[in-house]
Simulated assay, not measured.
Amino acid sequence: MKSAYDAAARMASAAARLTGDRPHVLPPLLALTDPLRQPDPVALIANLAPGSGVIYRHFGAADRLETARRAVTLANRKGVTILVSSDPDLARRSGAHGIHWPEQHIAQAGRMRARGSTLIFTASAHSVKALARARLAGIDATLVSTVFPSASPSAGRPMGPLALAAWAQHSDMPIYALGGVNPRTIRRLESLQISGVAVVGALEVGAIRTAGPTQT
């Protein structure tokens, strides 16, 4: 679908203009799956430009291994980085490049890193204290939310770009803005020295209208 690909390419280009001077191993644009707005990681990857990233949030789906394997195969072919959410076994069996950890699972990530895991780790962070915990756990990058007003049921009160910049000053980790990021709001993140953005609704590929759980 050319229009979806073009929209994703424009977001990737805008995200690339945000990157600060902190070393990071992830692309500047991370797209997250969602049971309502972005349910299919394979369709999502098909519409992403090379050099983008995907976080597959499976929410315990029965076909998650098959789906993850198909997504990883396509991601490797296209040059897209793919992580799975909160599931080390799924990451291992599918060959995913890494794991995304909800904030409440940062300690588990730290234990896995201490055992020698070299996978890419990202984590959600909703406070400055969580940023510090993520750094100690060996997390490679944090997704900080909620930055702008968001349609997600799990979204908290938006902090705005100035607060995001203040949070970034408390950590030397790569930080990604999550929550309400779209082609309009991403412009407000320029010059903040963050490493990129994480998006859901800004890249609606194959969206469906069934309610589902939330996972960050």
Rank of each mutant, 00 (worst) to 15 (best):
I82Y: 09
T81L: 13
R133I: 01
H170F: 10
A68R: 01
D63L: 12
T73A: 15
S85E: 06
L119R: 15
G116L: 12
E103C: 11
K78M: 05
F121R: 02
P161S: 13
G156W: 07
W167L: 02
S154E: 08
H170K: 13
A125L: 01
R115T: 14
L131V: 08
L162G: 13
P102V: 12
I82G: 03
S154K: 10
S152R: 07
A107G: 05
A166Q: 15
L74T: 09
E103P: 05
L164S: 02
R92K: 13
S145Y: 04
T73Q: 14
L119C: 08
W101V: 01
A123S: 08
A75I: 10
L136N: 05
A109D: 03
A141L: 05
G116F: 14
Q104Y: 09
L65D: 10
L136F: 00
A123Q: 03
V144S: 01
L143C: 08
G98T: 04
P88F: 01
P88T: 08
A155E: 00
R69Q: 15
R135W: 02
L162N: 13
D140L: 04
L83H: 09
V72K: 07
L90N: 10
T118D: 15
K78T: 03
S117D: 15
G95Y: 12
V80D: 08
I82A: 02
G95C: 09
A141T: 13
R135G: 07
S124T: 13
R113P: 03
R69D: 08
L119T: 13
A132W: 00
A163R: 15
R93W: 02
S127A: 03
R111H: 12
L164C: 04
A91N: 03
R111W: 06
T146H: 15
R111N: 12
A134V: 07
S117E: 14
G138F: 09
S152Y: 13
A166Y: 07
G79L: 03
A163Q: 14
A168N: 14
E66D: 15
T73L: 11
L143M: 12
R77A: 05
G156H: 08
L74Q: 07
A155Y: 00
R111Q: 14
Q108Y: 01
L119K: 14
T142V: 15
S117N: 14
A141S: 11
A151N: 08
R113I: 10
M112T: 14
A61V: 14
T146E: 08
A123M: 03
A125W: 01
R69V: 14
R70S: 15
V84L: 02
P102Y: 10
M159I: 15
L74I: 06
R77C: 00
T67Y: 07
G138V: 12
K129V: 14
I139Y: 01
P158I: 09
A137L: 02
